[in-house]
Design a binder for these strands. Structure first.
Lengths: 133, 133
DNA sequence: ATAAACCTTGCCCTATAGGGGAAGGTCAAG
DNA sequence: CTTGACCTTCCCCTATAGGGCAAGGTTTAT
């Protein structure tokens, strides 16, 4: 199976597939005599893993670690479980940050409705933003 | 006022200040005969604006636009108000995305507790991630 | 034999806000 | 006059997941 066919079946671009190989998350396939990458169908399963991992917010680098464990003959489940938990913790704190930001922005929107542009002093550029609450 | 003094008073690094100048968000100051940047105290007000804008999640590029309006003699309040609102909308949708991701991760954590590593098939690398719900 | 449709590698590009460090100029005090 | 503490510009680096493009090789059909 040539790269474009694999790409189509996996719903990816050929660029992405070559990228995965370079990152080390997809094994280098055999080559045809002409030098073309020649994948066997297993690659699809690997790409499914990559897609699932990515949609869980794991980076290609983390996925490579998981694959490396598996290649060393270990069952990576415990490691994956840790990755997932630490990712959730990270997402939790990111959400908290964004919620804080959101409330700041909402307060600025309130202020924008209250303030009169005529009162805005050039030295502050814009009093909506600059004036501290 | 030389750059390191300005940096200290503003709680920034000299690197950041030069960066702001290059981005166009801080006016190039006068120079001493020796070529050193020589700031007058107004720069502190500008830096306060930048800090406030950054903490509202606005990029230096957006802040530059705001400053450009002000320099053109306009009152940038309406524009700023729009920026803030669209930033809030952006943050809202980002929070929604992250909450979705968070629930996926929580589901994966559940699954990880349920599944037995012994059942994990190497072709999937890791069944916690790969198996679709 | 030639065009069309593939494929290859390689290099630079994106966005963001600077940090790190090099090579060298300036200024004050000793 | 030299040392140390400043300052200057310049260029590369970070993380992330590829996209774009160029120059060139391969395969298949006509």
């Amino acid at each position: 199976m040539l790269i474009s066919e694999l790409a189509e079946q996996a719903g990816l671009t050929t660029k992405a597939i070559r990228h995965y190989e370079r990152i080390g998350v997809l094994d280098p396939p055999n080559r045809t005599p002409g030098g073309y990458r020649d994948y066997d169908p297993e690659a699809l399963a690997r790409l499914a893993f990559i897609r699932a991992g990515r949609s869980a917010g794991l980076t290609l680098g983390k996925l490579r670690q998981v694959i490396a464990l598996r290649d060393r003959g270990e069952t990576p489940c415990a490691h994956v479980s840790d990755l997932i938990t630490s990712k959730r913790v990270e997402v939790d704190s990111r959400i908290a940050e964004l919620e804080h930001l959101r409330s700041e922005l909402a307060a600025l929107e309130q202020r924008a409705r209250r303030l009169d542009p005529a009162d805005c002093d050039a030295s502050k550029v814009c009093h909506i933003i600059t004036t501290q609450r």
